[in-house]
Nucleic acid binder design. Structure first.
Length: 433
RNA sequence: GGAGAGAUGGCUGAGUGGCCGAAAGCGGCGGUUUGCUAAACCGCUAUACCCUUUACCGGGUAUCGGGGGUUCGAAUCCCCCUCUCUCCGCCA
């Protein structure tokens, strides 16, 4: 969430940056300011009353000690109705505060000044490309046809089990999926200096709110039946990304500056309800309710935020380079960026069978936005508490990576050539019928 | 699932209604002493918010797992919740 002090002191700047996203947050912003004003007015008054009560109470204590019961009783009577006024004002403060915070949680992050102003994905600048589209000397097949022919994925039975949007990987398909996960984790932990994490795949609502998934995207998450032992966390949710548990690992903590930067790599399945997205364009493996992903998370000093973002994108690119997949890196314009992000790079990989690029990674610097939501801070060497920057990036998302891989490396005979780097993990250099 | 114990500052651990934002010790920071290190001694050592100042200082409020209650006043009394530990049962 945004810093209330920033909103208070640089209202025009905040309004301008929010408008750059193309959303309509002006009214919400105004309401936040009004509620904040109300809160502070009531707070100043109630604190004055409390100071008065504390002062008198001390006197009463002194009088009691001196056995001046008469005088003490008199003062008690005087103070009695201050209490009622105090609890009244306390409630007013709490009400204004909770309403203010509710609205604050619904405001997106401010885009970084260097991000291109735009409205849709058409406005996203291409930053760089790598490799080139492979020209097959035959008609390139789509991944659905390839997977069915090689029995890598049983689409029909996946649907039979869990409905459309769920994949049943079989035989070499299952092995390829597992090999890719292993390859990704290995790469990031041994060559890129991330610490491996294996998180819970179900998290409490506070984690979802912490990373900015909630409250806005609540309808995109799968809620889980609450356990019989009622938890203080309330309802639990299947993770839409490992970002949800991993970015929250240090929530409500005060880290030491020396602990930073923290870099985590975590595999998890990702569950997305994708409400309203069923139907057209959902066939195959491009858009599914459950997919695998290796997520990268960084918690860093604000000064390092953007250099770490660049490094993170390079880390994700390395994956595609090692797999020999052509891709482009784009930067999302203000209107296309996610709720929590200040700057985002997407990596889109070429899928010859689709004849289009697929998003396989999205790397964002959320700056202090998430840290503030989860009350994560670090104590700087100079002794002050600050919010770190939190970054997240896919490194990378499976299913789509799988698609690009089989479509790119398909051969005339219908087999798939496995890229050199992946062979030790799959223990095969070719998949054929 | 059953029985019991507990939750206090960075840590250990006192504190059963006012003198407690909280003893003591450890750790940490600063200083004195010292050829260096160590020791000894002295001082400082939580967070958030509000007001003021929009640098500094200062004033106030809240915080002893969380929430509610009693009271002029709660770390302390009452109620609810969560978590942790020990033992038994069950299980991968």
């Amino acid at each position: 969430m945004l810093d209330i002090k920033l909103i208070r002191e640089q209202t025009d700047h905040v309004r301008e940056r929010l408008r750059a996203r193309g959303g309509d947050d002006d009214a919400r912003l105004g309401e936040v300011l009004a509620l904040d004003e109300q809160r502070r007015t009531a707070l100043a008054e109630v604190e004055k009353l409390k100071a008065e009560r504390n002062r008198v109470s001390k006197e009463i204590g002194a009088l009691m000690a001196q056995k001046k019961v008469q005088e003490a009783e008199q003062k008690k009577a005087e103070t009695r109705d201050i209490g009622a006024r105090i609890s009244e004002l306390d409630q007013a403060v709490a009400a204004a505060e909770s309403r203010r915070d509710e609205l604050l949680l619904a405001l997106p992050n401010l885009p970084h000044a260097k991000v291109t102003i735009g409205r849709t994905s058409a406005d996203n600048p291409v930053i760089r490309t790598w490799g080139e589209t492979r020209k097959h000397p035959f008609k390139a097949k789509g991944h659905v046809e390839l997977c069915e022919a090689l029995k890598l994925v049983d689409f029909a039975r996946g649907t039979k089990l869990s409905g459309s949007g769920f994949l049943l990987y079989t035989h070499w398909g299952a092995r390829l999926e597992r090999a890719l996960i292993q390859f990704l984790l290995d790469l990031h932990t041994t060559r890129h200096d991330y610490v491996e994490i294996s998180p819970p795949y179900i998290v409490g609502e506070h984690c979802m709110t912490g990373v900015g998934q909630f409250p806005k995207f609540k309808d995109q998450a799968y809620a889980v039946q609450e356990g019989l032992d009622s938890s203080s966390l309330g309802k639990l949710y299947l993770v839409p990304t490992a970002e949800a548990p991993v970015a929250n690992i240090h929530r409500e903590e005060i880290l030491k500056e020396a602990q930073l930067p923290i870099r985590y790599a975590a595999y998890s399945p990702c569950f997305r309800a994708e409400a309203g997205a069923a139907g057209v364009g959902t066939r195959g493996m491009i858009r599914v309710h459950q997919f695998d992903k290796v997520e990268l998370i960084k918690i860093v000093r604000p000064e390092q935020g953007y250099e770490e973002l660049e490094a993170m994108v390079r880390n994700a690119e390395t994956v595609l380079q090692l797999l020999g997949l052509h891709y482009k890196v784009i930067q999302l314009c203000t209107g296309d960026m996610g709720f929590a992000s200040a700057m985002t790079y997407d990596i889109e990989v070429w899928a010859p069978g689709q004849g289009s690029y697929l998003e396989v990674s999205s790397c964002s610097n959320c700056e202090e936005f998430q840290a503030r939501r989860m009350n994560l801070r670090y104590k700087s060497d100079t002794g002050e508490n600050r919010h770190p920057h939190i970054l997240n990036g896919s490194g990378t998302a499976l299913a789509r990576l799988f698609v690009a891989l089989v479509e790119t490396h398909q051969e005339a005979d219908g087999s798939i050539t496995i890229p050199e780097a992946l062979r030790p993990f799959l223990k095969a250099d070719r998949i054929s019928a």
